[in-house]
Design a protein around this nucleic acid. Structure first.
Length: 268
DNA sequence: ATGGTCGTACGACGA
């Protein structure tokens, strides 16, 4: 079972890249963030033609938007929610069967939080912190035994999730209040699958800014995208993969796709 | 170097 998460930064603009990614990675399920397409304009037929007949999407004009594309059937999960009383298309969850289990897959796009890491003067940062509090409180009470949570969480929690821990401590995405809150959310019952595979002592990034043309050479990346699983699924964890090469494709997103692979037929 | 580049939608905003 191969599950991709990718902040695509406009689904319609990057449909050709999505096709290339499918050819490269052959995912069973694709979770996209920042689709930037209202539901009435969602390119449903194009997606089906790519081999993904099961589709769930929640989009709006210009901003945000998420979708889940699958080769296998699923149901929209009742835990798909609006957060902070805003219908801003940042979360979608589906239920599907895997190895005799019912698994809930959450796809999140956490608010980026603006530039100033002070909630008293920056309402976008305040929103980000409130969002993290709400999700953490909700998962504390409502997490399902077999859960996967993926998406652009817009926080790089560990020292080696950023190119310079010291220089980014006051930069939104790596401030202590954010990394603490993300860790609290993780600890509601998840395992950081990427760090199960790649030790925390190694640099690991999923995002490189558009503002740095020579992104690969300077390598000032951050791990903003995440793959979390509950302990019940840990025995199935086969590997993770970061498709860094996609950042060099024509007209790329600033985020690269990440893959979670779960073993099937574990007992046989 | 305190800038830089994107996408959306056509000016300004969000990232």
């Amino acid at each position: 079972m191969r599950i991709i998460s990718w902040n695509i930064n406009s689904l319609r603009l990057r449909l050709p890249l999505l096709k290339e990614l499918i050819d490269l990675a052959n995912p069973d399920i694709i979770c996209l963030q920042e689709t930037k397409v209202p539901d009435n304009l969602f390119p449903q037929e194009d997606i089906k033609a790519l081999g993904y007949p099961y589709i769930a999407y929640k989009g709006m004009k210009s901003y945000n938007g998420i979708c889940i594309l699958s080769k296998h059937s699923f149901e929209i999960s009742p835990s798909s929610k609006n957060w902070c009383n805003q219908e801003d298309c940042r979360h979608l969850a589906v239920d599907f069967h895997f190895e005799g289990k019912l698994v809930t897959l959450h796809n999140f796009y956490v608010p980026a939080g603006g530039d100033e890491p002070d909630p008293s003067i920056n309402t976008k940062f305040e929103h980000k912190l409130n969002f993290l509090k709400e999700t953490t409180d909700w998962f504390k009470k409502n997490i399902e035994e077999n859960s996967i949570l993926v998406g652009d969480l817009n926080i790089a929690p560990l020292e080696h999730d950023v190119w310079s821990h010291k220089q980014l401590l006051k930069v939104v995405s790596h401030t202590p209040i954010e990394t603490q809150k993300l860790t609290s959310w993780l600890k509601t019952g998840f395992i950081d699958a990427m760090r199960e595979i790649v030790p925390s002592t190694e640099k690991l990034y999923t995002w490189w800014s558009y503002r740095n043309k020579d992104w690969e050479k300077s390598n000032r990346g951050r791990r903003l995208d995440h793959l979390w699983i509950t302990p019940s699924l840990a025995p199935y964890l086969q590997t993770i993969q970061i498709f860094k090469e996609v950042r060099n494709w024509e007209k790329p997103s600033d985020h690269v796709p990440i893959l979670l692979e779960l073993k099937e037929n574990l007992s046989s």
